[in-house]
Simulated scan of single mutants.
Amino acid sequence: MSKPQEPHRPFFHFGNPFRAISPKGSKLSSRLVFLLATFEDSLAQKLRKLTPKSDHDVFSFLWMGLAMKLLCEIHNDVKTLIGDLELPVSDWGEKWLDEYLDISVKLLDICNDFSSDLSQLNQGHLILRCALHNLASTSSNQFVPARSSLDAWNQHISSRTSRVENRSPIMDHFEELLDLPKVKNSPKGKVLMQVMYGVKVATLFICSVFAYAFSGSSKRLLSINVPDTYRWAQAFIELQKNVNMGIKINHSSGRFTALRDLNAVDERVKKLHSMIQENIDGGMKVEECQNLIVDLRSEAEKLTQGVDHLTKQVDEFFYIVLSGRDALLSNLRSSETVFDQGMEALSTRQP
């Protein structure tokens, strides 16, 4: 994944000549009220859908995949709404543009960090496959290399490092971006900023939960207070409360990672490792060991499928952010070209 370079953006010292005259006052038309309400009701529905039904759902790859999928849908909804607002890029204020570009580049960085963490988990699966291959044989000679592979798994998982944790300033700065630029005398601008607030809250919350899940550090968790004036506020409050409850239970359990699918595999690896050692010492129950091997194979497959699915969702979100950023930069280039051509025509016009 790579990020595009930003072009030089035109700066109009005497005001943007292409800026449309916005209606004075902050009263919204019935059309703008409808667009805003439709977006906020859709956001509330998505947040309710993400609210875990039980504590065991939080930090499963199934739940995390749903979270990333909904985040993709939310950002696609924003693209649609911006088009419905008919608010050209040339009407965006300098602060809006700077903030959007700043947020988008941070989102791309975070996606890369998540992908790196998921890649480490995939590497661990290759080690497990080697162990399970050795254990498929009925020969007791295969138990020694199988134990060696399980040792390698334990070492790989315990030594993995999260890029999210190492790049914490990105998440720290993200929280500051909840403050929105001031909008005066632009009803469409006010709608856009209110919509962007909801998008940023949902994005920041999901990214912080993912950062905690991968790094295990509570420093990455955020408590976001949302005013109840937003139509989606209650749904978000309920979601945050349920996820925080799952986090507390995870802390009290003493598990080595918040990722539930990874914990399920790790618990079985440890049991199997202990049984193999018993076999080498001459005291293992063969049937019990075979049952555990089957169980480990099943959990390992679930982990792999979950990692693969979540990786695809993270990649999709990356390209949604990237395409939105590219579209904005392309429009800025077009505005700059039109402005330069207009200034050139003025300079060559004869009196």
Rank of each mutant, 00 (worst) to 15 (best):
S149G: 03
L101V: 06
K248W: 04
S159M: 13
S148T: 08
R297F: 06
Y197M: 01
S335P: 03
Y212G: 02
F14R: 09
A67L: 04
K3N: 11
A258V: 01
R220H: 15
R160N: 07
N76V: 14
F143K: 09
H251Y: 07
N279G: 05
F214K: 04
S29C: 14
D57A: 13
L180N: 08
M68A: 12
D98K: 04
Q194G: 08
C289M: 14
C72Y: 10
H251C: 01
F317D: 03
W232K: 00
D172N: 12
F34Y: 14
I110V: 15
V199I: 07
K248V: 09
G324S: 15
S334L: 14
G282M: 10
A258R: 00
T161I: 13
S115G: 13
M68W: 13
W232A: 04
E175T: 12
S29I: 05
F210C: 09
M193K: 08
E316D: 14
C111F: 07
D295L: 09
E287I: 15
E176V: 09
Q142K: 09
F143V: 02
N244H: 15
G189T: 03
S115P: 08
M343D: 13
K184Q: 07
L132V: 05
T138M: 06
L239A: 08
I276F: 03
M64H: 07
E6C: 00
K219W: 06
G216A: 05
A67G: 00
D109G: 08
P169C: 06
